[in-house]
Amino acid sequence: MRPTTVQRVKKILFQPGLYGLLAVAMATPVSGWAAAWTQAWGKVLATASITGFGFYVWIDPQTANNINNCPKYLEAAVLAQPAAEFFMTYSNGVPSESQKVTITQLSLAVSTGQLVKIYSGSCNNYGNYNSLDGVSLKPN
């Protein structure tokens, strides 16, 4: 019985398959964890803390989308211009430690003009605004 010799497969043969896999991955619609982030880095236009209640954030509407199809996505009543509005409800009337970190990051973004992306998993407890569940500051 003769031993079968198998030739080595070179990397060049894998490249078309790799490019095809990459093209399919890029064409797949956004889903999972990425779906709940704002679509682009945006400027924080204003913030407001309501004692015993929660924290509002308004960002540039050109960079955010109505992630959860909440009815009060764009709010022009508070600011002189339309803005994408997000709301974080305080637990037990006071912000938790993680909420304090988020508030600090957003305050830093307002004071320095740093851009942010906001994570929103649902409409807030009252169903009106996109919830504010996380924030990411754009690295310099």
Score class of each variant (00 low, 15 high):
111 S>F: 06
132 L>T: 01
46 A>H: 08
135 V>H: 01
92 N>H: 10
81 Q>K: 15
63 T>S: 10
74 L>P: 08
33 W>C: 03
4 T>R: 13
117 K>L: 10
58 W>S: 05
5 T>K: 12
51 T>Y: 03
113 G>M: 02
49 S>P: 05
55 F>N: 02
24 V>E: 09
66 N>W: 06
70 C>L: 13
91 S>C: 11
46 A>W: 02
75 E>I: 15
133 D>Q: 09
136 S>N: 05
73 Y>K: 02
53 F>W: 13
39 Q>H: 06
126 Y>M: 05
70 C>S: 13
41 W>D: 07
76 A>E: 08
61 P>L: 09
63 T>E: 03
37 W>V: 00
129 Y>S: 01
13 L>T: 15
28 T>Q: 09
89 T>D: 11
30 V>L: 15
83 A>T: 00
49 S>N: 14
113 G>F: 02
53 F>S: 10
30 V>N: 11
87 F>M: 04
53 F>T: 14
58 W>G: 01
126 Y>F: 08
12 I>K: 14
66 N>Q: 06
122 S>K: 02
69 N>G: 05
93 G>H: 04
28 T>D: 07
23 A>L: 15
109 A>S: 06
112 T>E: 04
44 V>N: 00
109 A>Q: 03
46 A>G: 07
35 A>H: 11
16 P>K: 10
57 V>C: 03
98 S>H: 10
64 A>S: 10
75 E>L: 13
90 Y>V: 04
120 S>H: 01
94 V>Q: 14
118 I>H: 04
114 Q>H: 03
84 A>E: 00
2 R>S: 05
54 G>N: 00
27 A>V: 12
119 Y>S: 01
103 I>S: 01
114 Q>F: 01
130 N>A: 03
18 L>Q: 15
100 K>A: 03
71 P>E: 08
69 N>D: 08
111 S>I: 12
8 R>P: 10
94 V>M: 12
93 G>W: 04
5 T>Y: 13
4 T>G: 09
126 Y>V: 10
47 T>H: 12
68 N>Q: 13
89 T>W: 07
1 M>Q: 14
86 F>H: 00
75 E>T: 15
112 T>S: 08
69 N>S: 10
44 V>H: 01
5 T>E: 11
78 V>G: 09
24 V>C: 12
106 L>C: 07
37 W>D: 01
130 N>Q: 04
117 K>Y: 09
10 K>L: 13
79 L>D: 11
1 M>R: 14
51 T>D: 06
82 P>V: 06
105 Q>P: 02
95 P>V: 02
78 V>M: 14
140 N>T: 08
15 Q>E: 14
83 A>I: 00
135 V>F: 02
38 T>F: 05
89 T>N: 12
101 V>F: 05
51 T>Q: 08
127 G>S: 06
104 T>C: 09
40 A>M: 02
3 P>S: 10
101 V>H: 07
111 S>E: 11
43 K>Y: 12
29 P>V: 04
132 L>K: 00
74 L>Y: 06
25 A>C: 12
34 A>K: 12
108 L>I: 05
22 L>S: 12
111 S>L: 14
69 N>Q: 11
31 S>I: 06
105 Q>Y: 11
